[in-house]
Design a protein around this nucleic acid. Structure first.
Lengths: 160, 160
DNA sequence: ACAAAATGGTAAAGGTGCTTTACTATAATC
DNA sequence: GATTATAGTAAAGCACCTTTACCATTTTGT
């Protein structure tokens, strides 16, 4: 006889494996074309710049939760590879606004398609086996998990 | 009016945030006692050794999906810090069996408590708001997500 | 208006945890 | 007993991060 504790245990095991597999995927560079191979970090940076036009370096760092120095290094690399362009706005010689070059937009688009495809597939699978209310209920359950994690994070950041 | 696609989108957003928060937690060392601060990697290694008594270095690497060299380096560090002990089995001078020292067992235990506490809290929250069948259904849904990820991983590993 | 402080960006040095390559030493196999 | 396989380590290097220190350009306060 399975108790609810058992099903929760199973649920969390799946969650753990999903997280693990996600980080596996995140750790592997993706080839978008014959000669375009980008690390996950590079892709995400391109994505962030594509989705936040005119973002500056400091903001980019904040978006990723890393130091501005780290953001500067990452962008410098992408500028070097020709995916990103840095330039001062007309009335400001201090900040640098980031934008995508043609190659950058191409990578951005390829990545979006890539993601869209997988999302569509997942959606198809879920719809075929779960009702609307079931998916909604699952979303609520995940929200609870998220809340518990938030609590833990806040205790962690308080203690330093 | 919310369509099922919308609820799926919401569900996946929660999932993404959970993953993000998880990796945030994973990136921060944990203080188990006044003077015991361990990185997540160190804790996990201690945990793995505690849960797999007599494991050797190569197996430890396989367990984590890293090279045996990485496992060797991690182990050496933990031996240096006094949490882990390496020794040859009586009839074998090639392999090294890993085990926890007193300090290692202490850290292992502290970590287990730490986890148990959070698990208990999460379980309490979930039980208070979700029926057994709902949690079971959610587990099934997560299994589907996992399957889709598996497919993606396998295409990835085929293409090299 | 101009000195002081704040802000955006970069450079240098260093850390962590990984990889690959090359190398030992021991064990297994023919 | 010679060869081959296996467990472990060392060295070098990579990706990405941090901190510190430093410029250059605003912004502010008087």
């Amino acid at each position: 006889m399975k108790t609810q504790s058992d099903t929760i245990r199973i649920l969390l095991t799946h969650m753990q494996r999903i997280i693990h597999k996600h980080s596996f995927l995140e750790d592997h560079p993706i080839r978008f074309a014959k000669d375009i191979v980008l690390t996950p970090r590079e892709i995400h940076t391109i994505q962030a710049i594509g989705e936040h036009p005119e973002i500056n370096i400091k903001e980019l760092g904040e978006l990723f939760g890393v130091s501005k120095s780290a953001a500067s290094q990452m962008t410098a690399k992408l500028v070097g590879k020709g995916y990103v362009c840095k330039e001062n706005p007309i009335d400001n010689n201090k900040e640098l606004r980031l934008s995508l070059t043609d190659a950058g937009r191409q990578a951005f688009h390829a990545h979006a398609c890539f993601h869209g495809k997988h999302l569509a597939e997942l959606e198809k699978c879920l719809k075929s086996e779960f009702s609307d209310s079931e998916t909604a209920r699952t979303a609520e359950l995940l929200a609870i998990i998220e809340n518990v994690m938030d609590k833990r994070i806040s205790t962690l950041t308080r203690e330093g």
